[in-house]
């Protein structure tokens, strides 16, 4: 009896939390997306106008495509960097493994705004990189000054620690004796990696990918401070609707589209993976 109540309480608290802070705001966003605004006033007039504007306006589709490409590229780059880093920590970190992984989280001790502004100082025309180049008599690197490349660098900088941590945790739980077994049976180190290490850590890698991809898709600060005149991404355009332009209903519709896009992206990634082969045990052994 006591156990049943404890179970209910333990499940109930997060359920209430999710309902109050996730489901209800999301529902209110959906409702708002079917209304309209008129000069900073919300008009409760049910219509599909916002979705029609998003579909036919062109600009918003461009923002979404830009963001999808940006999020995809940044997530891939993060995975490419995070894998060797995490692998090296596991192999050579010794008793400092945890410390080395935690070191990646140090930037999180400061706020996101501060980190982005610091990066603006680093990449900008008077930043450290270009200042050194100019002092050496070289031309400044214009492609890192207020461009989409600068935004991509900023996003990699922001989300790499998350991906490293996730892949590190995946590798930490991976039984390295399987590699030895593969080698004993004649597999080369590369083949052992491709056929044993990689697939058995694919689920962790995908989690890292998704945890990077989703926030990149809605990134606001990075494109605003680093992206320049051609760097407007979907999240930044969406934030604009809730800020100075006051077109909240259109912003809500953009939010709904972003939510659905994120879910579709996650499903697309998930559907291409045989979770059982990745060592994910949530579905049982089958």
């Amino acid at each position: 009896m006591k156990g049943r109540w404890a179970g209910r309480a333990l499940l109930g608290v997060p359920t209430v939390f999710l309902l109050a802070l996730f489901v209800l705001p999301l529902l209110s966003m959906v409702v708002l997306s079917f209304w309209r605004t008129e000069n900073y006033h919300i008009v409760q007039d049910w219509n599909l106008g916002n979705y029609i504007t998003l579909a036919t306006g062109g600009a918003y589709v461009t923002f979404l495509i830009r963001s999808l490409v940006m999020a995809g590229v940044v997530s891939l780059v993060c995975i490419l960097i995070a894998w060797p880093v995490s692998y090296a920590i596991i192999l050579y970190g010794g008793r400092y493994r945890l410390l080395l992984t935690l070191a990646f989280a140090v930037p999180f001790l400061t706020g996101e705004v501060l980190r982005v502004i610091a990066l603006q100082g680093l990449l900008g025309p008077v930043g450290l990189i270009n200042a050194v180049l100019m002092a050496l008599g070289s031309a400044p690197l214009r492609f890192i000054m207020y461009t989409n490349v600068a935004s991509a660098i900023g996003l990699v900088y922001l989300y790499l620690p998350i991906v490293v941590t996730v892949i590190y945790l995946s590798l930490l739980n991976f039984d390295a004796r399987l590699i030895d077994a593969a080698k004993i049976f004649g597999a080369s180190p590369l083949r052992a990696f491709v056929e044993v290490t990689w697939p058995l850590n694919l689920f962790g890698t995908l989690i890292g990918f998704v945890l990077c991809f989703i926030p990149c898709l809605s990134a606001t600060l990075v494109p605003r401070f680093l992206g320049g005149a051609n760097g407007t991404l979907y999240g930044m355009a969406m934030a604009q609707q809730f800020g100075e332009s006051g077109t909240w209903a259109l912003g809500a519709a953009m939010g709904v589209v972003l939510f659905l896009t994120s879910i579709i992206a996650v499903l697309l990634v998930g559907m291409r993976v045989d979770l059982r082969r990745t060592g994910f045990t949530g579905f049982g052994r089958g």
């Binding site: 605004t37 900073y40 306006g57 062109g58 600009a59 355009a237 604009q240 609707q241 077109t247």
Partner: peptide, 10 residues
Amino acid sequence: TEKWERVWSR
């Protein structure tokens, strides 16, 4: 603001 927002977004 709606017209101005479209101009700015485009």
